[in-house]
Design a protein around this nucleic acid. Structure first.
Lengths: 184, 184
DNA sequence: AAAAATGACTTGACGCTTCAACTATTTACC
DNA sequence: GGTAAATAGTTGAAGCGTCAAGTCATTTTT
């Protein structure tokens, strides 16, 4: 976290003086939560990616795209909506959809009403790919997270994660996961 | 998570039959925790990277490297130890140290006793860089996470994160954050 | 005392993400 | 109605991370 004032010290950390306006370092308790959280932020996505890559040849983001489409009405979403739902930028999505299109799992369709919009549509093969991939991915999510925690912890995790998201993404666009009225 | 059986449904999800050995989908409660966690996994690192990049021109990984070195005895660590401490691969670290070396914040030193080992050493400028960067980064960590949670939640987060890490990294190498005897 | 195996890195190529610039379409304004 | 502004999306270049291969030093084997 912070550079050590005394490089050869153990794990004790300086406590801020009351009146000082300088940086407030983390307390030991805070550090004990923050350090493993950093680990989760780095290693959990890598583990999920590894499972998907190994078993299905998909990145987590690609899986998210296919999965979101599979849950959408008519298996169709606007590129910009899909980007938000998949937690990615429009540019990233555009590149990924190009690759998914090449693999035959998604196709683009121009919107008739408004030529600016492009719809991404999940193909039959794409649907088959998602349904084949989902069970293994859910199993990984259970193995790494869900089955490791008690029901109380699941509730705590929901609160904590929602709170963090409300700070990280001020505009509450992170409600992305929830169903929303289809716009077409 | 899983493809919808009925594409036009809302948020209700199928519950597995007792005897079936097929995939166990997430329950609503589990999904309510998992969805925002995905958001955190994607958006929190991006937010931390953005703060560091904007205010200091460092990636989070680069900051971790400098920070770990600043806390180490003699501001020196073996490449392989540093890689574990910074939650990265040795290859990634090697590339990053090359860049940090070019910027004058780190230098490599061959180990005299065993020529296979390379030590990374934080320079004076590197120390200055970390101490200048740390306050802003800690402030971001407080803003996004620590100050947003109650003390109870900090404790819950520690338990949850440690539990997940124990599942993700079976070998308990993720204790990386803790001080450990220097080997030289 | 070679030869082989292990360990600690380094390097280069490839793929993916980001960023900025660009195209195309629709809406707003005068 | 024509120009400007806004919206939606695409594209190419640059940078970073990963993977596989390679280097060099030490240890083990025979």
């Amino acid at each position: 976290m912070e550079p050590a004032d005394r490089p050869d010290q153990g794990s004790a950390h300086s406590v801020p003086a009351g009146g000082e306006h300088g940086p407030r370092w983390l307390t030991d308790d805070e550090r004990d939560a923050w350090m493993p959280l950093i680990g989760v932020l780095i290693k959990l996505p890598a583990a999920l990616d590894a499972q998907l890559q190994r078993d299905s040849g998909l990145s987590h983001f690609e899986y998210m795209v296919l999965s979101r489409l599979s849950e959408a009405p008519e298996r169709t979403l606007r590129m910009s909506d899909l980007a938000v739902l998949a937690n990615g930028s429009l540019s990233r999505l555009s590149h990924v959809v190009t690759r998914l299109e090449r693999r035959g799992w998604v196709r683009r369709e121009a919107c008739a009403e408004d030529g600016r919009y492009t719809n991404a549509v999940l193909s039959g093969e794409g649907w088959a790919k998602v349904t084949a991939t989902a069970p293994g991915h859910v199993a990984a999510v259970r193995q790494f997270v869900v089955d490791a925690l008690s029901p109380e912890q699941i509730g705590q995790l929901r609160e904590i994660a929602q709170t963090i998201m409300s700070r990280v993404v001020p505009g509450d666009d992170w409600l992305a996961g929830l169903p929303h009225p289809a716009r077409r």
